[in-house]
Design a protein around this nucleic acid. Structure first.
Length: 269
DNA sequence: GTGCTTGTTGGCCA
DNA sequence: GTGGCCAACAAGCA
């Protein structure tokens, strides 16, 4: 589930614990692959006794800052099925709970049903390199039309669907957002980057920003989107295009399940 | 049992 | 070296 908007929503779930100290770090499965490359003992020592200061997201990455003067950093990636939650009172550890920060009045829990997520840790005055080296966010000035055009030029042989999923240029875009953007841009997901006109590149750039900007506010409490979005119809059998009511098509494109409207997104335009 | 899955990575090949 | 493709990772679900 976690793409840009869901990651942002997830990050905020832990906000209830802001300004409060971590009393204990619980790692039920220290050998789990989400900790690959991280010494779990450092994690435990690092956060115990530190105050939860703030957090932010970039694309699908989350960064949480702890310590009086911001010295300890926790990075989380939700992978395919990661989730954050808080639990008041006594915590009953569930099967896929991987990292638990205990505070006086609640537990902050990271769980991951499929264990494809990632936990990162850093101690130091400044944010870690794995954070500062992330590509420029889609809603930043650095994500301009020229950057998109250059990237499409380089990835000229790959289907648009695959290009949209490349985090190095489209950080935060996942499977459903890629389909949503291509649908709104009237671009078939299997088109190769090389065959886009200048006007189509402009449209793709603009639409990418629009969908990212709208996604966070448009999501309801069940993590769903309005009926006018392709999102609301893409998984249902017999789903229809919310714009022209044609039957939607689904196939594997760029190695991923893809949904598009054959009428709004013809192969040739 | 089979065949999927909202993500990422590394190996293979052209 | 670069880019495209795909299996693997792990677990749940239909």
């Amino acid at each position: 589930m976690p793409e840009l908007a869901e990651v942002e929503q997830s990050r905020r779930i832990w906000n209830v614990g802001l300004g409060e100290k971590v009393l204990e770090v619980i790692v039920p499965r220290p050998q789990d692959r989400v900790f690959r490359g991280v010494a779990v003992s450092h994690l435990q020592h690092g956060f115990t006794g530190k105050v939860f200061l703030d957090s932010e997201t970039r694309g699908k990455q989350m960064l949480f800052r702890f310590g009086r003067r911001g010295k300890v950093w926790l990075g989380l990636h939700l992978g395919m099925a990661g989730a954050l939650r808080t639990e008041p009172g006594l915590l009953e550890i569930r099967k896929h709970d991987l990292l638990v920060l205990r505070q006086a009045r609640r537990y902050l829990v990271f769980s991951d049903r499929r264990h494809l997520g990632r936990v990162l840790f850093h101690q130091g005055e400044t944010p870690p390199a794995w954070w500062t080296r992330l590509p420029p966010p889609i809603l930043s000035d650095a994500f301009d039309r020229d950057a998109v055009a250059a990237f499409l030029g380089r990835r000229k042989g790959a289907p648009l669907k695959a290009v949209m999923l490349m985090q190095e240029r489209f950080p935060g875009i996942g499977n459903w957002m890629a389909d949503e953007i291509l649908w709104r841009s009237h671009l078939h997901p299997a088109i190769r980057g090389r065959s886009l006109s200048n006007r189509q590149i402009t449209t793709l750039h603009r639409t990418t920003r629009q969908v990212c900007a709208a996604a966070i506010g448009a999501m309801n409490e069940n993590w769903e989107y309005p009926e006018t979005w392709l999102f609301a119809h893409r998984w249902e059998d017999g789903g229809r295009c919310p714009r022209c009511h044609s039957g939607l098509k689904r196939a594997i494109i760029g190695g991923r399940r893809t949904c598009w409207c054959p009428k709004c997104q013809p192969v040739k335009r």
